[in-house]
Design a binder for these strands. Structure first.
Lengths: 348, 348
DNA sequence: ATGAAAGCGCTAACAA
DNA sequence: TTGTTAGCGCTTTCAT
């Protein structure tokens, strides 16, 4: 037939394409890269592109990364992908990154500093071009160090107050305020609050907002109705609400700092023979996937996690391309109270 | 002081370590690699290791991968990480891979062949050393192609019957049989089955097992009580059960091919004013996270997803190290029926 | 036990 | 417009 032969076995390289096209590898490189294609004779470029396609040529990301010092990968640090909060964030991130040719490397830290350090090191060995971090604690030496190294970095979900980090968070203030107002509108006056771990920005902000909103809406805040959970977890929520129930101070509603804590509340209520919302109304935070399947369906503050991921990815790409900002901006995404069956008006 | 100075800015390379140690880079390479360390004078090696640590040296995974043609990364193809089934599998995979120095690259395919093809190509560009695939369809040209390319490959969750692929699946036969027996023990005789998409191995196996188990246990299988869902999704389950309810053939229990379909059953029952388990008992499959929080709590066949991921990762590492097996083995993991509140004895 | 040298596949500065 | 050359950081063969 007289055409060139297509090697069936090994992965073709630029050199293979160059040989088949009868040109130098550099020309092939230029022709195949859209950025430099204009430097090449249009017909030659077309021929090269065609040959590359026929051979099934795919650029070697390792070689390109080594040469250009850009890997087109980004590291994503999460507490735990099995927490339903995070998969939508990840999908949002990938939705933005993939079309731009970037690959996300996911790492779980389990909120353990050692593990986080190890994951971070591993990702750096793979020369990721930047980080999206969902594991920020209010005091976070590791993140301060990363920032000093001038690596593109965006925080998501949680932030570090006044840290100057670029971050994407939910409008927790609006969310908690709406939740408190909803309960008060239903006639509740004795409202308990289950706060999250004090080293997380979201926990502190939601707690402070709860106090302020209740006061502003004319409901006295009773310190005995505020319990701290050591983790955003079902077990911690169960334990915290059990402590409140065992206490003397009565209450008709509880606002949980997040949905997992609210799930724990359901457990505690059931074990104590209390009904929801008959005896006690519950509101959660995050509106995580499948939370609407509970009985009674949980009223919760919906956070746009998918959009959060998208925004974080966009901000990271911007940093990768334009360089680090002098001072990071914090993007606050709107939230919405989704009323379901877990809240009821207090009996007259 | 008189020590060597530690460069604070750029990432140190082998060369930096070599200069500080006064030896050749090759010696540093040998000393730092446990496999070749014995070739180096013990004292020299110790000195090099110490200097490398002081400098904060980290091997460049891109350079190493380029040189050795092994990237120490593996690709993981999932339908969708937001399906709660998959995060535990991913964690299981990482639990095995990370200690061995491997990094997992996660890709979502949304069960779309185009997207899967694109993801696959992207992962190949990054020269992953192998694939763990949770997206297998019974007829899957892409996977057959990959296999011909002699790339290490392990299927997880789903398999391809008689395809010769190494795979890790649940013991669906035992699971479905236990579920059917449970319903029959409760006195049910009119049992509906909601099958999954016919192009998935799990769907076919569970359907066939249902038919066989029911017959063997002395319950006639009525074709009118078998509905096919086009997807493993809530919406598909809702639609399928609604069709059955609208039909003439009565039934007292429904076995869903997976939990998402069972979730859809809850929706359909509620919309039709039927109670569970009062009017109709429901059993799911997978026992996915949070499924126990439903009301009534869903009886389901527990599948050890975490262990599934671990096993798949182990088998993949074996392939990467020992080469591809002539014919892949299928590992079947034990399952367990978890009885919760969604099933009740039929009224006499 | 160590050094020298080559080269993995690619891009980019420089030359022609 | 195209070719030449060098080199990213590492491993590995060969030589000493």
């Amino acid at each position: 037939m007289g055409g060139y032969s297509v090697p069936m076995s090994a992965v073709p390289t630029l050199r293979d394409v160059a040989v088949h096209a009868g040109v130098h590898v550099a020309t092939v490189s230029r022709a195949l890269n859209p950025e430099t294609r204009h430097q090449v004779n249009a017909e030659t470029a077309a021929r090269i592109i065609s040959i590359a396609r026929d051979l099934g040529y795919r650029p070697n990301a390792l070689a390109r990364g080594l040469r250009t010092a850009r890997s087109t990968t980004v590291g994503v640090l999460l507490p735990d992908i099995t927490n339903p909060l995070f998969p939508p964030i990840v999908r949002g991130i990938e939705e933005v990154l993939l079309p731009e040719g970037y690959t996300a490397l996911i790492a779980n830290t389990d909120n353990a500093p050692d593990q986080e350090e190890a994951q971070f090191t591993r990702l750096r060995q793979h020369h990721v071009d930047g980080f999206i971090v969902a594991t920020a604690r209010r005091d976070h030496p590791l993140l301060r160090r990363v920032r000093q190294e001038k690596i593109p970095l965006v925080l998501v979900n949680r932030t570090i107050e006044r840290g100057g980090f670029t971050s994407v968070v939910a409008d927790d203030t609006a969310g908690v305020t709406a939740a408190v107002r909803h309960l008060i509108d239903l006639g509740h006056r004795d409202i308990a609050f289950l706060a999250g771990p004090s080293n997380l920005s979201t926990a502190l902000l939601r707690l402070n907002t709860f106090k302020r909103a209740a006061a502003e809406l004319g409901v006295a805040v009773d310190g005995r109705l505020i319990e701290r959970c050591e983790a955003y977890s079902e077990a911690a929520g169960d334990a915290a609400l059990s402590r409140l129930i065992a206490g003397e101070r009565r209450f008709t509603a509880v606002l949980a700092s997040n949905d997992l804590i609210a799930l724990g509340c359901y457990d505690a209520l059931e074990r104590n023979g209390l009904s929801c919302p008959g005896d006690i109304s519950v509101i959660g935070f995050n509106d995580m996937p499948f939370i609407d399947k509970l009985r009674p369906p949980l009223t919760s503050v919906h956070v746009p996690h998918h959009e959060m991921g998208r925004t974080a990815a966009r901000l990271l790409l911007k940093q990768i391309r334009d360089g680090l900002p002098r001072r990071g901006e914090t993007v606050q995404l709107p939230v919405e109270l989704v009323v379901r069956g877990s809240t009821a008006a207090v009996r007259p």
